[in-house]
């Protein structure tokens, strides 16, 4: 699915990622943890092609294709999805228009016809029900006036609509109450298939208990310093990151 080799990236001339190596296979779920400023969000930004970040060295292959040479929208069409840590508000643009532009864009990229209005509305309804979003969603402006929890559920709703191959959940659990977290986790689990993969960036154990990732990485100062199973995340929950810092 994804292979990152010796990835270095900087923002405003400051190097944040300092040699990341990471392989994610089909159907795998990986958790990415690490103290603030370790480069977790930078990695998700670089993967999705955010122009604020500059890749200075290394390569990323996504399903056999050179990801770094692709435009952000083509990366999305190829099946890469980011659930934003801070979803952006777009006043006046309805979720319907927004999702239709996104979904039909992807369909055209793959040589498929646009969905008809009826097909699209049916799909929206099916997916929003999964995330327990009400029928007002269709006409609401993208993220405008959404509560923190609604914004995060709306991210996973979009993920459900676009059916990505690789999803990155960047602190999707932060700011969620217990009930909302369960909705989000159930949503993510129900979208899981043998050929889809997931990177979960989080500080907390709770979401990981719901999602049960096979592999946990710890990122520190722009490098993956430790890889293991859920025992790593449990240790962080119990002890914090001091032992990672001390080992450095």
């Amino acid at each position: 699915m994804l292979e990152i080799k010796n990835l270095h990236a900087s923002v405003d001339g400051k190097e944040i990622l300092r040699g990341i190596d990471l392989r994610i296979g089909d159907g795998e779920m990986h958790a990415l943890m690490g103290p603030n400023g370790s480069g977790k969000s930078t990695l998700s930004a670089v993967l999705t092609g955010n122009p604020m970040y500059e890749v200075t060295e290394g390569s990323i292959t996504f399903n056999g294709k050179d990801l770094l040479s692709m435009k952000p929208e083509d990366r999305a069409h190829e099946g890469l999805f980011l659930s934003f840590q801070y979803p952006v508000e777009i006043p006046g643009v309805s979720m319907t228009n927004f999702m239709r532009a996104a979904l039909n864009g992807k369909r055209r990229y793959h040589g498929e016809k646009d969905l008809t209005a009826a097909e699209f509305i049916r799909l929206m309804k099916e997916k929003r029900t999964l995330l327990q979003l009400d029928n007002k969603l269709a006409n609401r402006s993208v993220n405008e006036g959404f509560s923190g929890g609604e914004k995060k559920r709306n991210e996973i709703f979009q993920m459900a609509m676009l059916e990505p191959k690789l999803s990155i959940l960047d602190e999707t659990d932060s700011g969620l109450d217990v009930d909302a977290m369960k909705i989000v986790a159930d949503g993510v689990n129900s979208l899981k298939r043998a050929d889809t993969s997931c990177i979960i960036i989080t500080h907390y154990q709770r979401l990981l208990e719901y999602l049960q990732p096979e592999i946990v990485h710890i990122l520190y100062k722009g490098r993956i310093v430790c890889t293991g199973g859920m025992e790593l995340s449990r240790r962080i929950e119990a002890e914090g990151f001091d032992w990672v810092r001390n080992a450095d």
């Binding site: 122009p51 929208e73 999805f81």
Partner: peptide
């Protein structure tokens, strides 16, 4: 904002189309 454009890009909407969407949203009233 750059953030709005990138959010659209990440969902597969190219910048030109994103600007059209955002401007139409702005003028919707």
């Amino acid at each position: 904002s750059e953030e709005q454009l990138f959010y659209c890009n990440q969902r597969g909407i190219p910048t030109e189309q994103a600007v059209g969407l955002i401007v139409n949203g702005y003028a919707k009233d």
